[in-house]
Design a protein around this nucleic acid. Structure first.
Lengths: 135, 135
DNA sequence: CCTTGACCCTCCAGTGACTGGAGGGTGCAT
DNA sequence: ATGCACCCTCCAGTCACTGGAGGGTCAAGG
């Protein structure tokens, strides 16, 4: 199967499939004309990658996950640990975004948003808290 | 003031301050020895940038915010609109992360996490829905 | 046989927002 | 004179792609 079809089945852009090959994640055979030749296993691997990436795993984590996946004797514990670490990451990111959201909401609410120039948002960015000097 | 001191006051790494200069966000004077010379205004600008970046504004958005900040006659409405757009972005990101979190939690819960090799997490990544053979 | 168009190839460069390092100059204290 | 912290410029690397140039291949239609 050519790269286009494999990419379509895995839900990835062709460019990305090439990229995954260039960093050693997949190694398709070549036909006599030089075209890459993907079999079912490779397409599976690409789909795996697509799914794992969309779940927020980095390429390096995907590499680990893939080798775990390929090793049919590994303990599920190892995979679970990686996934749990990722869960904690996601929780941290959500918490950080919530803080951000609260701060920005506060600022937006405080800003009258009209023609006048004075704006609490910029004042905050400039470090001008009332009663506190930050210079 | 040298770059080191300016960076310290703004809460940024020196490298980042150099970078901001290289992309035209700040333009410090130079002393006779070639060293950059930062005044209060510039330090303020750097601190503004630090804060805005930490609030999740991109460099391009910071550029817009800065020019708004420098234009003492702009309407607060313009600033508010940018901040509101950012708020929507943040909400989208949080929602996406929550979906991710739910999926991964589900997977982690389903995985017994012991010495045995069978693992719902990898099964999911491999696209193995129950009752369907995929190679 | 020729053309058209979709597909494929490789290689290079760019994205965003820095970060690290090499290789050298400056300023101040000892 | 030496040491050290600081400063300079320029280049390369990060992450995970993405875009494009400049070509080759293949099947269909005329």
């Amino acid at each position: 199967m050519n790269v286009g079809e494999a990419a379509r089945r895995a839900g990835l852009p062709v460019k990305t499939v090439h990229y995954y090959e260039s960093i050693g994640l997949v190694a398709p055979a070549r036909k006599s004309n030089g075209y890459r030749d993907y079999d079912q296993t490779l397409v599976h691997k690409l789909a795996f990658l697509q799914r794992a990436r969309s779940l927020g795993f980095s390429i390096d984590e995907c590499r680990g996950l893939l080798s775990l996946y390929e090793d049919r004797d590994r303990a599920s514990r190892d995979v679970k640990a990686i996934a749990e670490g990722k869960l904690a990451d996601i929780e941290r990111k959500i918490a950080a975004l919530r803080t951000l959201h609260a701060t920005l909401t506060h600022l937006v609410d405080a800003c009258h948003g009209d023609d006048r120039p004075d704006c609490p948002i910029l004042d905050d960015l400039a470090g001008a808290d009332p009663g506190m000097d930050r210079g």
